[in-house]
Nucleic acid binder design. Structure first.
Length: 226
DNA sequence: ACCCAGGTGGCCC
DNA sequence: GGGCCACATGGG
């Protein structure tokens, strides 16, 4: 993995953060009531609009099964029905159940014990689980464990590409790029990613031109995909 | 009738 | 390290 370069003529991550924060305001993310709900949401939101996740979480709450031991004991068919709105429901049900079983068997259902690790070993643990890759792992570390691990998602990559913030666009390079150029601060990491998602949902679409995007004025190169 | 959404794992080269 | 594919529902 190459060291990501900061292109000097363009926005730095912190300048981008400041600009977006002043434009969108604080988001106070992640939309969940408990750390465990963050984990469930992180798995369910994979490649799916958050609106669908809300329905699934609601189903789990109504069924009173939003709990690691309850999910690990739930018949897979029932879990599939609850999370159906999030798509890929057979995969996600299987993975969610195995993640919950892991939490129960290894940590007796206590996320505190799981989260009471150094970031690097916590991340390695999470990444070893089926259904948790870098974005989900970092989301869980940042928003559930509340430790500084910057989250990269499709919007982040798209923005970096269009603004030409950095030349390396693979996950770990982008993560390192942001972490190397921001204060190591949980609050900033949380808000930055939340605001990027807010920007992405509203403006940073896959279509070549994103009308009315506040970044259009900020950077002329932010007009189209290559 | 398309295209897209806060990815991931498996398989290939 | 990439590129390609399956996975599946709901909204525009």
């Amino acid at each position: 993995m190459k060291e990501p370069n900061l292109r000097q003529h363009l926005l730095s991550p912190y300048e981008l953060y400041s600009f977006l924060l002043s434009h969108f305001g604080a988001q106070h993310w992640w939309p969940a009531e408990t750390p465990f709900e963050v984990i469930v949401g992180a798995v369910l939101t994979q490649q799916v609009a958050w609106k669908n996740v809300e329905k699934a979480i609601e189903n789990l709450k109504n069924a009173n099964v939003l709990d690691s031991s309850k999910i690990s004991n739930l018949p897979i068919e029932k879990l599939e029905v609850y999370i159906k709105p999030t798509g890929f429901y057979r995969q996600k049900a299987r993975r969610l159940k195995s993640i919950c079983s892991y939490i129960c068997s290894e940590y007796n259902g206590s996320l505190k014990d799981l989260f009471n690790k150094e970031i690097s070993s916590l991340r390695a643990k999470l990444l070893s689980l089926n259904g948790i890759a870098p974005e989900s792992a970092d989301s869980i570390i940042l928003y559930a464990a509340e430790k500084p691990s910057f989250v990269i998602d499709a919007y982040t990559r798209r923005i970096c590409e269009r603004l030409q913030l950095t030349n390396e666009l693979d996950y770990e390079s982008l993560k390192k790029f942001f972490e190397n150029n921001l204060p190591e601060n949980v609050g900033i990491y949380k808000e930055f990613h939340a605001i990027i998602v807010e920007l992405g949902k509203n403006y940073c679409k896959t279509k070549p031109v994103c009308k009315n995007c506040p970044l259009n004025k900020k950077c002329k190169s932010y007009t189209q995909d290559k």
